[in-house]
Design a protein around this nucleic acid. Sequence first.
DNA 1: CTACCTGCAAAACGTTTGCAAGACG
DNA 2: CGTCTTGCAAACGTTTTGCAGGTAG
Lengths: 149, 149
Amino acid sequence: MNKGTECVRKILEDHGIPYTCQRGEILSLFIAEPKHYKPNEVFRLLKDKGIGIATVYRTLEILRECGIIIEISAGRDVFYRMKKPESNCIYAHFLCDVCGKIYDCLDSGAAKKCSDFFDLLENSMDMTIKDVNITIKGLCNECKNKEGG
Amino acid sequence: MNKGTECVRKILEDHGIPYTCQRGEILSLFIAEPKHYKPNEVFRLLKDKGIGIATVYRTLEILRECGIIIEISAGRDVFYRMKKPESNCIYAHFLCDVCGKIYDCLDSGAAKKCSDFFDLLENSMDMTIKDVNITIKGLCNECKNKEGG
DNA sequence: CTACCTGCAAAACGTTTGCAAGACG
DNA sequence: CGTCTTGCAAACGTTTTGCAGGTAG
């Protein structure tokens, strides 16, 4: 049993999730390359290892429930990615209309401003905010410059 | 031909959309009760009048394309509602975890602040923002007080 | 050994499409 | 009358579910 497996097993068990090799593989994927994955993508990358689509969905739900990964909906698509420790329930993503790439886009300064803003909103509307999901659509850096030039 | 029909016909034609009674019915729904509708909901409310689900989807897409209504995705659900003239491409919605109700939640003051924030972000990340969709999840006013008390 | 987890296949959704019939101007 | 629009049913992609067999502890 190698180092990576050990590490992944520990994360799962620390969250009260019994280890199985399928769960290990899925979580490893998110750790190895920390980007946004659609369920289908996870399935495509791991089906060679004999992981079924149902297990992918069930595992993503488990990992999300316990806060290891987060679910992001951008338009009609659903993505998952690792939860970053510094993010305080406010997630902002930029989705490029042209190339379809998805970018995270809150540095800690912006996150703080945002957080203050939503605190105010929470009070003024007398509700309890659990999380905020901001999806920005437009042209990303690359596509903007391609179109312009 | 009554007043309501005339009015709806005018809106459609002003946007370059040929009038049909199905389009009229769908748009009337949004005008009569200006709330958030899922495609399915629109279909359920209008199928008695012989409107098919395909027509609902096609019409919603047409109305969205020309800016009469907007599309909002909240979690895995897609909603449509009338576009408000004052909204400047920034849409914020509150979705209650418990009762599932959806609320608009940017008054003009908050919208201005938000707008400034995203202008800054746009510059600092060198991208072009077309629209911003903010989904806030949590407990709404009513459900919060029910749970608490 | 028991409880839980898995893959498969089928079902359940939401959404889109092709097509023949019908409505619009 | 030609064009565009419609309803239907089928197709499609995504997500969920039931179940028999397998795995973990």
